[in-house]
Write a protein that binds this DNA or RNA. Structure first.
Lengths: 177, 177
DNA sequence: TGAATTGTGTGGTCTGACCACTTAAAGGAA
DNA sequence: TTCCTTTAAGTGGTCAGACCACACAATTCA
């Protein structure tokens, strides 16, 4: 017998086809996607498998379901995935130290970005780092920091902040071509 | 009528309880978790709902299912969530820049940590940043970097690396108490 | 001993049946 | 007519049962 590739699970197939459908029909946040039963029909996949796919996408925060109404595309900005991951990832003991390191790294980097963009001012450092990060206008950075910060707890350490800024001034991230 | 809070969906309840079970039983990567039918029994939740939960966790790369064998905890290093999210999230144009920034931030921070720990040596910089990051012994940092890096693509920019190291030397993350 | 067979457990999938809820249409009272 | 009530249809939420495909270990048989 040659290869005999195993076909992808209906579950994954459903996700792929739903994604494709969204893209093809130019659906955006807030738009409604077909009902579970209709999807099951159109994709020739049992409703169970369609639901498994939808639930997974929902857990990721990519869609939103409202009983009696339907399933809607969500604004990707507020995806849930990371807090989710966190609960799994941040279990161990060592990770606690790691969190502090990563948080510091992100904060430093954030400042560096601000300095590069000349958005930041020394005075503004009286604000919390959280507010500063919002100014980076980097959604990805914001997301990650928010998550980390969520697990690190608050530590308004002004002294550390000053050191970070000093370091940040030294850094010049090369603008990408 | 007062509040009348809606009970959380079985789907979410299943996820929560499975997580709790994992924590309680001290299960780690590679370990097997109860079968779908047993979970359905123990949690008093229909197998369909249990499956929806498991599929979602699988999509995140947190568990792995093998037909005929069972469901196993996966090493968090290779969680799938980001490629997944990516197809939804990283469509736009701006996000692409964000990725580069975050990647640079992490790399810089990584070097700073290495310098602090006196683990890094100038010579070692001939290696890729990826290998350096492994030495930080910071799982969280490794995870995030791997994800980001996955979307940023490779750019072996030695010059940038040198600048980063110089900056890193200036930085002294205060050891946590 | 060693190979083939069987049995059991597991995930993968589908179907049909309810329930709870939302919305809009249909109906009747003013 | 207008307004409220009732009804119907559509949707997600959940469950139970039934198969199938597969992996593994126990059993059987040559």
């Amino acid at each position: 017998m040659t290869g005999s590739v195993r076909p992808p699970s209906k579950f994954l197939a459903a996700i792929a086809q739903i994604q494709e459908m969204i893209k093809r029909d130019r659906l955006g946040p807030g738009d409604k996607i077909p009902s579970e039963r209709e999807l099951s029909d159109r994709l020739s996949i049992g409703r169970s498998s369609v639901r498994e796919a939808l639930r997974a996408l929902e857990l990721l925060g990519l869609i939103e379901t409202r009983r009696g109404e339907g399933t809607f595309l969500r604004d990707f900005k507020d995806h849930q995935l990371v807090p989710l991951i966190g609960t799994f990832l941040f279990d161990g003991d060592q990770t606690k130290e790691d969190i502090h390191d990563v948080k510091a790294i992100l904060e430093l980097g954030c400042l560096a970005v601000l300095v590069r963009n000349e958005t930041a001012d020394a005075k503004e450092l009286t604000n919390s780092v959280g507010q500063l990060i919002e100014k980076t206008d980097n959604r990805l950075l914001q997301s990650i920091w928010m998550i980390i910060s969520n697990y690190a707890g608050n530590d308004p350490d002004d002294e550390r902040l000053q050191k970070l800024l000093a370091s940040a001034r030294e850094i010049q991230y090369s603008k990408r071509q």
